Computed example of a mutant assay.
Amino acid sequence: MTTNTSAKPDELAAAAFALFSTRGIAGVNMDEIAAGAGVTKGSLYWHYASKKEVVLAACNLYYRVWRNQIEGAIAGHERLADQLEAAVAYSVRSCLLDDANRVFTTEIVAMSLYDAEVRASWTGFLDETERFFLGLTHRAVGAREFRCDDVDRAVDLMLAAMEGIKQIALFRPQICLPENEQRTCRRLMSLLGERLLVPAG
């Protein structure tokens, strides 16, 4: 096998993510991460001193991809209600229907039970996600494109429902099949509130 001694940290994190999302975090060691990235173990340790550092790097990569892609998902929509629907639809596809993302984030939640650093990392991402949906929902309500009596409570409920669906998928994988995407989106949107018709002109 050819080794890549100049691999960048993100490339190493991406290789680790691929392994973690198919074999679990506990089931992968540093030798396997190095092999998956096509580097020597020494090259991997040059960037990351421990497996936990690799895990946190994979988390940060996941967060950055989410941030960029959800912004891209709403960018083509002028109306705020359309942006909100697009953000929910992206979240369903990314967090629930994408097997690799769903497995990886479930692993991170499980690891967070006993690892304070991983828990703090995931908490920061959850806080960012909450701020994103709170801001977007408040703006849609303020523009009279969306009706929601209690935005804070509605966003909390919607995000909790998404996490619940992710957990249920461990036992009922059919809930995250592509054919259920539209129904899941409608149900999550209904937790946020009701879209209002905007008068023309």
Rank of each mutant, 00 (worst) to 15 (best):
A49W: 08
A49Q: 14
A49S: 13
S50T: 14
S50H: 11
K52T: 05
E53M: 06
V54A: 10
A57K: 00
A57Q: 01
A58Y: 08
A58H: 09
A58K: 09
A58F: 04
C59D: 13
N60F: 07
L61P: 04
L61C: 04
L61N: 06
Y63V: 10
Y63T: 05
V65Y: 08
V65L: 12
R67H: 09
N68R: 06
N68Y: 03
Q69R: 12
Q69D: 07
I70V: 15
I70Q: 04
E71N: 08
E71F: 09
G72K: 02
A73E: 14
A73L: 13
I74Q: 15
A75K: 15
A75L: 15
G76E: 05
H77G: 04
A81C: 09
A81P: 02
D82N: 01
Q83A: 05
E85H: 08
A89Y: 05
A89H: 08
A89L: 09
Y90A: 11
Y90N: 09
V92G: 10
R93F: 10
R93L: 09
R93V: 09
S94K: 13
S94M: 11
S94F: 13
C95V: 13
C95M: 13
L97D: 11
L97C: 10
D98S: 12
A100G: 14
N101L: 03
N101F: 09
R102P: 09
R102Y: 05
V103C: 01
V103G: 01
V103K: 00
V103W: 00
F104R: 11
F104P: 07
T105W: 10
T106E: 11
E107A: 01
E107Q: 09
V109G: 10
A110E: 08
M111F: 04
M111Y: 03
Y114A: 05
Y114N: 01
D115H: 05
D115E: 06
D115K: 04
A116C: 00
E117C: 02
V118Y: 00
R119F: 03
A120R: 12
S121D: 13
S121H: 13
W122V: 10
T123R: 11
T123Q: 10
